[in-house]
Every structure is written in C-alpha cells, then in structure tokens.
Design a protein around this nucleic acid. Sequence first.
DNA 1: CGGGCGCTTGAGTTAAATCAACACAAGTGG
DNA 2: CCACTTGTGTTGATTTAACTCAAGCGCCCG
Lengths: 223, 223
Amino acid sequence: MYVTISTDTAAGVHPIPQSAGHPRARTRIAEGAYLFFEGDEVDNLYLIESGSVRLTRVLEDGRRQIIAFGFPGDIIGFPAEGLYNTDCDALRDAVLRPIPRRLLEDGSADPALHKALMAAALREISGMQDHFMMLGRKSASEKVASFLGALSERVGTRGAGAPEITLPMGRADIADFLGLTTETVSRCFSALRKSGVIRLRGIHTVEILAADALAQRAQSQLN
Amino acid sequence: MYVTISTDTAAGVHPIPQSAGHPRARTRIAEGAYLFFEGDEVDNLYLIESGSVRLTRVLEDGRRQIIAFGFPGDIIGFPAEGLYNTDCDALRDAVLRPIPRRLLEDGSADPALHKALMAAALREISGMQDHFMMLGRKSASEKVASFLGALSERVGTRGAGAPEITLPMGRADIADFLGLTTETVSRCFSALRKSGVIRLRGIHTVEILAADALAQRAQSQLN
DNA sequence: CGGGCGCTTGAGTTAAATCAACACAAGTGG
DNA sequence: CCACTTGTGTTGATTTAACTCAAGCGCCCG
C-alpha cells in the first residue's frame, strides 16, 4: 500500500489470473506471525487474498521503518538479488496465494502472469515515489491526512453514510510508516477530530466526515 | 542511485547486453536540459552511459523531492501505467542509450535484456527501501553521512590517496534528496569537515579522510 | 573588475520529539 | 466478580533538531 494506488489501478488494469501459481495452495499466517524475514531466500511472492500485513525494515539500534502495508489484492515479496528485502508479518490473520518466484523471472512459463507481476512491480516503484514525497517533504499533519485519504481510497467502505476506514494497524505502526512518533500521530488524529474532519468510532474505526477538507490538509497545512 | 547500490551489484550481476536496444542510437542531453517529464508517455527507458541526471517530483506548491540521481550504469525511466512518474533533467551533460519500452514488457524479443531490465527494476525497489529508512528515521547528520558513503561506493575514486567524490549536484539537490534544507546540508558538511572526517577541495569535490568514521555517523549520531 | 549565484554561518523560531502522567480497555488470576 | 496488570492511546510540559530569516563570503563568469 503506497498511499496513492487506488483500488481501480491496483486491481483493474492487470488483474492476477485466477489460474496463477499453485491454483489451490494457500498460505495462512496468524496475527503477529512472520511470513518471511529480510535476507531470506525468496521462493514465492504472495498475493494477499484476505487480512493485512506489514513490511518493515529495522536498523541495528531498533529504529523501525514500515515500508508498506499489504492489503487484499497487493503482491508482496519482490526479491532483490534473490532475497527478501524486508521483514513481513501479519497485522490481522491473513490468507495468501503463493506465486513461485520463477514465474516472475521466467516469462515463458505463464506470460499473462509474468506481465501482471511486472506491472505490479512497476506500480510499486511509482507508489514508493509518492511515499518519498510524503516522508521527505510533508508536515506531520499533512502526512496523517494523506495517509487517511489513501487508506480510504484503498480499503475504505463507501456506503450510504460517511465513508469509513477500519485501521488494522496501531498508532505506532502509522508512526513508523510516516516517520513520526506515536504521540504526534495521536495529536494529529485529535486535531482532525476536533476540527470535524473525522470521527473516531473506537480506536480502529475512522469515519471521514469531510473528505474534501481531508484532501486539503493532505497538501497544505491549513490546520 | 539509491544510496546502497554498490557498483558491483549495479553493474556486475546482470549487465546490460552490449547489443541491447538500438545498438548505435544515443541520446544526448546538455546540462540542465530535460529528458522527460512526469506524465509523458514512456517510449524508451535509458541506460546512462556518461554524465548524471536528476529524477524529481514536485508538489503543486513548489516543494520538491529528488527521487534519485542517475549515474553511468543506471537505468532510468521505468513506466507506471505507461507513463513516466518523475521529471528527469541532466546535472551534467549526459549520453544515454535508449531502450525501447517493449523490450521491458515483452520478454520474447530479447530475453537476456528483458531479464536484465527486470533485475534492474527489482534492485530499484530494494534500493528505494533504504532511502525510506533514511528519509523517515535518520537525523540530518546521519542522512548526509549515509549519502556521502553511498556516493563514495557508487561513484567514488579509490586511488592511492584518500577516496574522493566529485559531486555533480549542488547543496540544494542534496537537500531535496534527503528531505532537508540547503542550510542544514551545509552545516552537516561543515561539521564533518571540522571533525576531520572529510575535506572539501572546492565545493564539488569531497575527500573522505576517515571512511570508518563516516560509516559510524551514517548509523548513529556521534557528532 | 563588478555582478550574481551558490555556499556558509549566525541568530531566532518552530514543529516535532521527548519525557511524563494519565485514561481506558482487555485480559488474568485470585 | 472484582482487583490487578498490561498494553495502547491520549494529553500536557518541556526540550531540541532542524527550519527560517538574514547577512556575509567566495568563486566563477562575463
């Protein structure tokens, strides 16, 4: 999840063929369990079918950066020099479809899937570039607003009432994704709440009362 | 240039075949000239043969983030949904080998090149993740030290004397790459100079007097 | 030689981090 | 069933790293 990929873009243009990979095989990981670690040999990529995961990098001294959150429809586990380049664990119980690595590297075995994987990798590059802009050049409140806006696009419900997001991650995860502290994230949530842009229905459910105002705040810091 | 890609890794493992693309064709761009803009249709990727380029994204209000610097051996211009996702202009006069986009997307035309391009894209993803860690979780002095260390690895000279880097970019570019201001970058350079880690021979030439100390400072802020 | 741009340095300000306390819910065990 | 612990989130007070504003310097180029 790289903050700008809309559901349309992510799922629509190059859908993963149903027949892909091991058509039947599924990998299940329980909340908190790890799927792989940075430096492990890559055997499979994974298509997330349900649940959500967290891709992290850690510095020796413990500082952590969340590289991405993975939601249903996302493909995770692209190798660099044959190795995973992040840790991956489940935020919520997840079901994944393994896709053998050779289908990424060898175009002849399944051309359609190969193309879809390639497109996913390229989309990942593009999405990460938005994340750069966010990490490097946005204020705390802009970051949080951008994050909520992107999540709303990607995994929000769009029913009759106000759009709603269920956050599978905690404040600390959001902080580590945005390059902030939990306190700052919390304060930004509070500010959005107090100005009527969002409403919190429990800690993990965000109602978006004013999507336009949220979009404003994602680009300029008019409190 | 994504801050951790060593020359070995970048050039060694999956070299771009000499025959690639239009074997003879070359594109030349003069210092300051643009090669492409964000949103342009991608016709070619480019292998940088000489010179250096700058890949940037700009926010409506003018805030700028440099996504990457491109040096000889790098491949730039990976499309997302068929479009370039950054602007690209030359820091120094550059010579580029165009590689038709279809050779990335169609594996059958030139399998070896296709594989090499795929590997380059995957390496790019991995490299960007290091950049995330840097933007999100490192202090200004750590960022600058990391940057100089990475540049030294990538384009430094390693002769008899002290290793040396020729910076093709100005302080403002470094700032926009690291998510800092020019003033802060300048102060970090001065701090490194005053503590004897580097020496400046003119504004664009950095001698690394203590590579070990530089590496230290890239990970922990012992001034 | 003069002008201008890019770099450096200093002083003051500010956004976010840090430090600290507290609230609240969920889970545990007596 | 209630005390107690534990984890997570919120809020407040204070500190600090980096930004902003401002001035000066030096180098390149006409």
